[in-house]
Simulated scan of single mutants.
Amino acid sequence: MSVTNAWLTLIALSIGSTILAHFGAAGIFASLAILTLAWIKAQVILRVYLGLQNAPSWGRGFGMVLAIYMIGIMGLAVAAS
């Protein structure tokens, strides 16, 4: 993925998060959807902007840490609802 495509992807995901948050999406499903979009954005940043697509083992390591963190945050969101 090129830097331009990554930037466009990040913009689209940000718009999606904003639309979900602004136009009345409420409840746990909206929270999980917004967190999922944030997770995807973080993966794009790690792979393209930090260059981890060129270092697969480092990318997997950072991806696992990110996955554990996001699953924990999603669990807290479900527990709080």
Rank of each mutant, 00 (worst) to 15 (best):
M1P: 08
M1F: 03
S2K: 05
S2I: 09
S2M: 05
V3C: 05
T4Y: 04
T4C: 02
A6E: 02
W7P: 00
L8C: 11
T9G: 05
T9I: 11
T9V: 12
T9A: 13
L10Y: 01
I11D: 00
A12T: 12
L13N: 00
S14F: 13
S14M: 09
I15T: 12
G16N: 00
G16D: 00
G16Q: 00
G16S: 06
S17L: 07
S17N: 07
S17P: 00
T18C: 11
T18R: 07
I19Y: 04
I19K: 02
L20T: 11
A21V: 04
H22I: 15
H22N: 14
G24N: 12
G24K: 12
G24V: 09
G24S: 08
G24P: 06
A25R: 08
A26P: 02
A26M: 12
G27M: 09
G27F: 08
G27H: 04
G27Q: 07
G27A: 07
I28R: 05
F29V: 15
F29K: 06
F29P: 00
A30C: 12
A30W: 03
A30K: 12
S31A: 14
L32T: 08
A33V: 09
A33K: 03
L35Q: 11
L35C: 04
L35P: 00
L35N: 06
L37E: 04
W39V: 07
W39I: 06
W39R: 10
I40H: 05
I40T: 11
K41D: 11
K41I: 03
A42M: 13
V44N: 06
I45C: 01
I45G: 01
L46S: 05
V48S: 05
Y49Q: 06
L50Q: 03
L50I: 03
L52Y: 02
N54M: 07
N54A: 13
A55R: 14
A55Q: 14
P56Y: 00
P56I: 01
S57I: 13
S57G: 05
S57R: 07
G59P: 01
G59D: 05
G59Q: 02
R60T: 10
F62K: 09
F62T: 14
G63Q: 04
M64Y: 12
M64E: 12
M64G: 03
L66R: 03
A67M: 14
A67S: 14
I68W: 03
I68H: 02
Y69V: 15
Y69P: 00
Y69L: 15
Y69S: 11
Y69I: 14
M70I: 14
M70L: 10
I73H: 00
I73G: 00
M74E: 13
M74K: 10
M74N: 09
G75D: 08
L76Q: 13
L76G: 04
A77C: 05
A77W: 01
A77D: 11
V78Y: 07
V78K: 09
A79V: 09
A79S: 13
A80V: 12
S81A: 15
S81P: 03
S81R: 10
S81F: 14
S81H: 14
